[in-house]
Simulated assay, not measured.
Amino acid sequence: MKRAYIISYDLNSPGKNYESVLTALKSVGSWARLGGSAYIVISTMTAAQIRDKIMNVMDNNDQLFVGVVKAPAAWFGLGDEVSNWLKNNLD
């Protein structure tokens, strides 16, 4: 079953492996960037599976959160492209 997940991460020094983290994050399903290091993805994976996939390319001192997002939801200032994506993908 597909679910929407919010993913937020913080990459701390010294590694800061942004490219690998983003590649792993974007590989779990359809995605939209909310801003900074926050994304929403639509995936058939569980939150733990997504966490584990992204953790594989993170450093031990990095931080990661994966949680379910459901409608209703509210937002401000995300722009038309992201707003439309959210409207079309959140159940």
Rank of each mutant, 00 (worst) to 15 (best):
N89A: 07
A73F: 11
G67K: 02
F65N: 13
V28F: 01
Q49R: 12
M58Y: 09
K70V: 09
Y9W: 12
G35Y: 05
F76K: 08
M58S: 06
A32L: 01
N56M: 12
L78I: 07
L64Y: 05
D80F: 10
I6E: 05
V68K: 08
D91L: 12
D59T: 14
A73M: 14
A38E: 14
N61Y: 13
A32I: 02
R33T: 04
I50Y: 02
D10L: 09
I40A: 07
Y18H: 13
D59E: 11
N88Y: 05
A4F: 01
D80E: 14
I42N: 02
D59Q: 15
W31K: 02
A32N: 00
A38M: 14
K26A: 06
L78D: 00
M45G: 01
S13W: 10
P14H: 09
T23W: 05
D52G: 04
A48H: 15
N88T: 11
V57L: 08
E81R: 15
A74L: 10
A24I: 05
W31Q: 00
L22S: 03
V68A: 08
V82E: 00
L34Y: 04
L11S: 05
R3A: 10
V69G: 02
V82A: 03
N88M: 10
R3L: 04
T44N: 13
S20H: 11
V41H: 00
W31N: 00
V66K: 02
M1G: 12
M55L: 14
M1F: 11
Y9L: 07
M58C: 10
S83R: 05
A73Q: 09
V68Y: 06
S13D: 14
T46M: 11
A38P: 04
M55Y: 12
V66D: 01
G67L: 04
L34A: 03
T44K: 13
G36S: 12
T23H: 07
L90K: 02
F76Y: 14
G79Y: 07
K53T: 15
P72K: 02
V28T: 11
R51E: 15
E81G: 04
D62M: 07
V21T: 06
A4I: 04
R51S: 15
T46H: 10
E81K: 12
L34H: 02
K2D: 08
N60C: 14
A24G: 07
S30L: 09
K53F: 05
S37L: 04
S30H: 06
V69D: 03
N56I: 05
N12S: 13
D62T: 11
K26L: 08
L64I: 07
V66R: 01
V57C: 08
V69M: 02
V66A: 06
F65E: 07
K87Y: 08
F65M: 15
A47T: 04
A48L: 15
Q63W: 07
K53Y: 03
Y39W: 08
M1W: 13
L22N: 11
V57I: 09
A73W: 12
T23K: 10
V28N: 05
W31S: 01
S27E: 06
K26R: 13
N12A: 13
L25H: 01
V28Y: 00
A71S: 15
K70S: 12
L78A: 02
N89M: 03
S20F: 08
V82C: 08
N88W: 02
L11G: 09
T46L: 11
S20A: 15
V82M: 02
G67V: 04
V82L: 04
